[in-house]
Design a protein around this nucleic acid. Structure first.
Lengths: 154, 154
DNA sequence: TATTGTTATACTCTATAACTATA
DNA sequence: TATAGTTATAGAGTATAACAATA
């Protein structure tokens, strides 16, 4: 008899209608991946949300808060506190957008970029554990299919 | 220039590192599917959570609250209020488990089963819209891959 | 001793409206 | 008029510990 575990589901329900429901599978897989990601990033004082902001602001994109909100599907007010938190830790800074003085461009600081590098290792290690049962090509296929759902045309 | 929409993401960020991150894609796809599901089920006075409980208790599985919690990855205390709510609406009932008098078996009532039938149509229609860009075989592949992540061996 | 369901509680997350400054 | 960011607030979701009944 298997030890009770967060990822173990009762046998009797495995045959239920929900097991064929992509939305349900999406929810359960996401819950597992999110828990693993948060656990792995805790060592860096981050959660997936904050980590995602750090990744997005470490590149050349120079996103506004509004763009971060849309991309991460967060309310703009949630981005405020997320950026507040990261800024208070010296990991990102708000820069005025020269093209639109209403907008803030959020950019990672040197410290933020450094943290992303080490945090990414932990995040990838956690993802590796979660995806251990999938082959490399299966992961590629999964990513492609999920991208279609995550970024629908129009 | 595209109208701002909840599912539209800023172009500049589409090239970011996160777009290759399966966990991120999982989170975003799930957020979109969950929003669509909740919107579709609202007409029946349900959300995905309650709908899922109704589906799981409409079959022959006769799950306990503990089993529902594990399968849906909810805290047992969340299942209490979920079942309370459905029971107060006459959609499910708690039955004593003859094999274990500590446990409640949750079963959908006739009304609950009837509601599932109509609610399922709305849920499937919503899922159809969300998955419109995927072919039938792609959906099957996606379901198979997600099932591996959602129900890891051991 | 351990587990099921329950309650209470606190914490996080999410959603909304209103405000300001800019466009 | 409309939009970006902010603030305040309320609501929903999540997590924890403690308890009674039962195993």
């Amino acid at each position: 008899m298997p030890k009770p575990d967060a990822t173990i589901a009762p046998e009797a329900l495995r045959a239920s209608a929900l097991t064929d429901d992509v939305s349900f599978l999406l929810a359960r897989a996401n819950a597992i991946a999110l828990a693993a990601g948060n656990a792995a990033l805790a060592a860096h004082g981050l959660k997936v949300r904050a980590y995602s902001v750090l990744v997005l602001t470490s590149g050349d994109a120079r996103p506004s808060q509004r763009e971060l909100a849309e991309f991460l599907r967060l309310d703009p007010s949630q981005v405020v506190s997320l950026v507040d938190e990261l800024q208070s830790r010296g990991l990102v800074e708000r820069q005025p957008d020269p093209a639109d003085r209403r907008a803030n461009v959020v950019v990672a600081t040197e410290a933020g970029r450094a943290l992303v590098v080490t945090a990414r290792e932990s995040a990838h290690a956690a993802e590796e554990r979660v995806h251990a049962e999938l082959s490399a090509s299966e992961r590629t296929t999964l990513a492609t299919l999920l991208r279609t759902l995550a970024f629908p045309a129009e």
